[in-house]
Each structure stands twice: as C-alpha cells, then as structure tokens.
C-alpha cells in the first residue's frame, strides 16, 4: 500500500524537482520579477494614495496605511504577474499541444493534469521564495506593510495562499486544455490576466469595485487569488466571514480541478497527433 502510494507520487515529486531546478537555472527572470514587482508596487501605492487623499468614499473604507498595505501586499502575491509562470509553463504547455509534442506527455505514466500542477507548484514555490519573500521583507522593513493581524491570521494566510495557488493552477489548466480545441489561446490567456488583475484584487481592492462589477467578481474564482489572502493577512476577515472566505476559496480549487478532469476526459480521446 505504502509502496504503491510512493510509486504513484514519486513521478510528480520528480517533475516538481526538475521544474524547481530549471527555475534556479533561470533565476535571472525571477530577479527581474522582483524589480518589476517592486516598481509596480511603488506606482500603485502612489496612485492609490492620490486617490485616497481626494476621495471620502475610499477614506471611509480604508485608512491611508491600510490602503498602502493592501496595495503592496497584493503586488507581493500577485499571481497574475507576467513572469515565469505565465510564459514558460502555460505557454510551454500550449505550445507542446499546438506542435503535437504533447504526444510525449501522453505516453508517460503520469496523469497530465497532475504533472501540470506539479510544474506550477514548483514555479509558485520558487516565486514565493525568490520574489515574494524578499519583497515582503523589504516592504515590511520600510513599514509599508504590517505583520499579519494575528498569529492565527498569519497561519490562515498561508492556508489561503495554498488555496489561491490551487485556484490559479485550475485556471491555468483550463486554458491549457482549451489549446486542444483552439488555434489561438494567446488572447484568452491575456484576457485571463486582465480579468484576474481587475476582478482578483491585484489592481483594486474588490470591496471598492462598483456594484455591477462587484456582483460579477463575487461569482467568479478570481477573488480567491489575491483579495482573499490579503484580506485575511490584514485581519479584515474574522469569525464566520473568515470561514466562509476560506470555504469559497477551497471550493473553487476543487471545482476547477474537477472541471479540468472532466474536460480532459472529453478532449483526450479526440486528440490526434501525427508527430511532434
């Protein structure tokens, strides 16, 4: 039983390790991500401080310090960052499908979906360690972000971040699977980035979205990516709201994973590859 479990898990650990090592080989990309994320955080901070100082509505919702904390934290954990994840992993998978090289993936004794998740987990871990953590330290030192609202909020922030990664992987996977049926997924991928930034909370706190957009955002999974973890970190969720937010996040993670499995089950028998 244990041996069977180990043999079924080991290939994905291998995929995780191989992808993590490739991230290390391409660490320059992540270093540039640090610089870019830092500059975007500074710009967004200036923008929202200017808006905050001129708007009573925003002042009612946030103090200036809370506003800065939200904006900076949302850039630190921005899963829509145009970095390694989007380009090499998602586009790489889509390119293999478009060119027929996916045939090699299909003959491997690994589940296609789990292999993709293992790759994205490696990139996410690397991004969190090499981009997110140093940025958090820098912004914490300059006082732009506080510590988590409480130790419990800190732990639940990590739990929420794990769910955010699962939701992100679910969305990535759906886009990759669409590549089996569409010749042009570049636009879909970019629309996903824009939707994720506006409705996910990395450009604007969802609480400040106008009524119609707020209603749309609340029924889409993007809120689970940035808004929920940052809101938990800042201690804005507590009690039943906190439990509900985590439940919604993990619910989306499960739903997207199942949707990916079902779509794959539909697409897989129809895949015809003449060569790679």
């Amino acid at each position: 039983m244990v041996r069977a479990l180990r043999e079924s898990v080991l290939p994905y650990v291998g995929t995780w390790l191989a992808t993590f090592r490739s991230c290390w080989a391409l660490r320059m990309e992540f270093l540039i991500s640090i610089v870019v994320a830092f500059l975007i955080a500074v710009i967004m901070r200036s923008l929202w401080l200017a808006i905050h100082s001129a708007s009573e509505t925003v002042q009612t919702a946030f103090t200036d310090r809370e506003m800065v904390s939200y904006v900076v934290m949302s850039q630190i954990i921005n899963l829509a960052r145009i970095g390694h994840t989007n380009r090499r992993i998602v586009y790489g998978a889509m390119s293999r499908i478009a060119r027929g090289q996916v045939a090699m993936d299909l003959i491997r004794p690994q589940v296609f979906q789990l292999t993709r998740y293992a790759e994205w987990l490696a990139v996410f871990t690397f991004d969190a360690l090499v981009v997110g953590l140093p940025l958090w330290l820098v912004f914490r030192l300059v006082g732009w972000i506080p510590n988590p609202a409480s130790p419990v909020h800190g732990i639940l922030f990590i739990v929420s971040l794990a769910a955010a990664w699962l939701v992100m992987s679910g969305i990535h996977y759906l886009i990759v699977v669409i590549a089996f049926r569409s010749t042009n997924v570049f636009g879909i991928q970019m629309a996903r980035v824009a939707l994720q930034e506006v409705l996910g909370g990395s450009l604007i706190p969802i609480a400040l979205l106008p009524g119609a957009l707020l209603a749309i955002a609340s029924v889409l999974p993007f809120q689970a990516l940035v808004f929920t973890p940052v809101w938990i970190y800042l201690g804005r969720f507590s009690g039943a709201d906190l439990a509900r937010a985590l439940l919604v996040q993990w619910g989306w993670a499960a739903l997207l994973a199942v949707a990916g499995m079902l779509i794959w089950a539909y697409v897989r028998p129809r895949v015809v590859v003449f060569g790679g």
Binding site: I51, A54, G187, I188, M190, A191, L195, V198, I204, L213
Partner: peptide, 19 residues
C-alpha cells in the same frame, strides 16, 4: 478576448476616477 483584455485596462482608469 482583446476587448476584455484592453477594455479592462481602460475600465480600471474609469473605476479609479469614479472616486
């Protein structure tokens, strides 16, 4: 997709200026 992608960029400015 392009309308969503680009429209949301301009839409973001609209949201910011709604305040």
């Amino acid at each position: 997709s392009i309308l969503i992608w680009r429209g949301l960029r301009v839409g973001f400015i609209g949201i910011a200026f709604s305040f």
